[in-house]
């Protein structure tokens, strides 16, 4: 089951690299969020308590519903649906993604997690998610795609967190989720303001300050 969920996360990352449609990016990130929520609940089922359950369910709702809803709402406001000219096209992104997956799998063999009986795909899956997020931020021009990249990167960090720690203090985990919530909120507000001021959200054209 662990392997299956991690493979799903990896496949969604590949899908994110291949798509240029912003709605599709957000939808698949939502699916990834739901999978990670299930992953969080499943990985701690042996130590399931009220606070662990709340964190798992909270992650599922925030990553799977709330963040995507914010981003979709922003997409409608700024009337942008497609990444028209990314720095790297879909096929190029996929090929780079494959190289990153190979590197992640190799690093996964070099970075074993001591004292745990977790899946051997956890570290590669995490590294690949972080890479995918970073690559989306670097290779896409639209600010919303970059916000999605940030979410995917955080999903990777979340996965290794819940996959290796059976228990973390409630306030730490809820604090991280709250940080994420605020980050996404600020990003959506910034994107909306950017669109209002410049009539676009293409970060490539933001190289000079406007008087």
């Amino acid at each position: 089951m662990f392997d299956f969920l991690i493979v799903l996360v990896i496949l969604i990352n590949v899908r994110l690299l291949a798509t240029g449609r912003i709605e599709s990016l957000i939808s698949w990130t939502a699916v990834q969020g739901v999978i990670l929520g299930v992953f969080a609940l499943y990985s701690r089922q042996a130590h399931l308590s009220v606070d662990v359950f709340i964190i798992g369910l909270g992650a599922l709702l925030l990553k799977g519903l709330v963040f995507p809803a914010f981003l979709l709402h922003t997409t409608k406001i700024v009337v942008t649906s497609r990444e028209t000219e990314p720095y790297v096209g879909p096929i190029g992104s996929l090929l780079i993604g494959m190289v990153a997956l190979v590197v992640s799998l190799w690093l996964g063999t070099r970075l074993p997690i001591p004292g745990t009986d977790t899946s051997h795909l956890l570290v590669p899956g995490t590294l690949f998610s972080i890479f995918t997020g970073q690559f989306l931020i670097i290779s896409r021009k639209m600010a919303i795609s970059q916000a999605v990249g940030f979410l995917v990167m955080e999903n990777g960090a979340f996965m290794i967190g819940v996959g290796t720690l059976y228990y973390a203090p409630f306030f730490v985990e809820s604090g991280v989720l709250l940080d994420m919530f605020l980050a996404v909120l600020i990003m959506t507000v910034l994107i909306t303001d950017m669109n209002r001021a410049f009539h676009h959200i293409d970060t490539h054209e933001l190289s000079r300050l406007k008087g």
Binding site: D3, V7, I10, L11, V14, A18, P90, I91, L94, M98, L101, V102, L105, L121, P124
Partner: peptide, 18 residues
């Protein structure tokens, strides 16, 4: 069509790697 076939390649390659 090439995108679909690249997708098929990726499925097989990931299957090979993991």
């Amino acid at each position: 069509v090439p995108q679909l076939l690249v997708g098929a390649c990726i499925f097989s390659v990931i299957g090979f790697l993991i």
